[in-house]
Design a protein around this nucleic acid. Structure first.
Lengths: 192, 192
DNA sequence: ACTATCCGTATGAGCGTTCGTTTGGTTCAC
DNA sequence: GTGAACCAAACGAACGCTCATACGGATAGT
């Protein structure tokens, strides 16, 4: 019952694969077209330009992160549950959108000024989410009172963001299992 | 007594700045030359080509990491001291070579096949170092026995590698202080 | 049922520009 | 007068993108 993928969607799909693998500037429109069995010029019957592809892929990833993480603020969970849930959803977004997530983390600097600014602002909201999450945990006495909120948030974000560099589908662990392992190590520490 | 910087060194310095800021493919030889007050073609009196710049910057970063981390294997420290020391040195290399480290982490995929392979092999040795470090801690009973060695190493590497994305010189914390904070959080956990 | 029209998709030549790099000649300190 | 450093110009290739054109299938008019 699923509609056959439109040519336009195919283009975005292949663009995601190529941009994530080779990078935005190292991928030519002719490269992209030839992977789709067409000529370079034919792409412009479907899209307005190369940058649109990048913008779309980055927005797509950002939307996934937003949809997964933002509702957390309103959910009625303990700070520890929130932290676990945030990491779990964050890593799941990376794992289930590996290509666009890679483009997002790696190529956003090449966006035009407007889109560039939007991404930096978005990043700030995610930073704020993790910091609030840590702060809430400290205030409620669940996390250690001597934590530096900013550094703690950086540590958490490191763990979840860096996954795009090494996670590959088909590995032994699901995204949720990875997140759980990270959460256990981070909450209880490595010490015996 | 310090020798005045050779033109060649100036080129590498500016290349590091531009490659880390804009990316390798988004930086043209003319961009680079104009920042040095010369014409594009004049660069070739000093260097053999654009790729040489990338190779050199990447090798420079790799050498710094090697010099800082590899001796750790032979040093007579407890597993916990080794972990702290590894993180500390790792982050210090990033912080003190921010531009070449950024180029290293971000642009290594654009190297020619030979240099590309060398980098992947190098990354494996660093992975192995961190895994051995974790394993040693488990074997000696200092770290929890239920740790997944690979995941633990990923977590540690996430923390130290991701620093290049947010660390900026002149911030409130030194590299060593950042490493110490990370080590404390990772060893003892976030839980109160 | 036949024809005319249109639309989505693709071609392939080619636009102007920029790329990395080469070349020949000039300047100038030693 | 030799050599290092640089310029100005140009090379061929590749870039993103445009355009005139063509073809096939749906739609509509008669």
């Amino acid at each position: 019952m699923t509609q056959p993928k439109s040519r336009r969607d195919q283009i975005y799909e292949v663009a995601g694969a190529l941009f994530s693998e080779r990078g935005y500037h190292a991928t030519s429109m002719r490269d992209l077209a030839s992977q789709l069995g067409m000529q370079g010029g034919s792409l412009y019957a479907h899209i307005s330009g190369k940058e649109e592809l990048l913008v779309e892929l980055v927005n797509q990833a950002a939307a996934q992160f937003d949809a997964a993480l933002m509702p957390l603020r309103a959910e009625n969970l303990t700070p520890e549950q929130k932290l676990r849930e945030a990491m779990r959803r964050h890593i799941e977004v990376v794992a289930h959108n590996l290509e666009s997530a890679t483009v997002f983390f790696h190529e956003w600097k090449h966006l035009s000024p407007d889109a560039y600014r939007k991404v930096t602002e978005w990043r700030d909201t995610i930073d704020a989410l993790y910091r609030d999450l840590v702060r809430e945990g400290i205030d409620r006495g669940v996390f250690r009172a001597d934590l530096d909120v900013k550094m703690t948030a950086y540590l958490l974000l490191s763990a979840v963001n860096w996954t795009y560099t090494w996670y590959r589908p088909g590995g032994p662990l699901t995204a949720a299992q990875i997140a759980d392992q990270f959460a256990v190590m981070l909450l209880d520490g490595l010490r015996a």
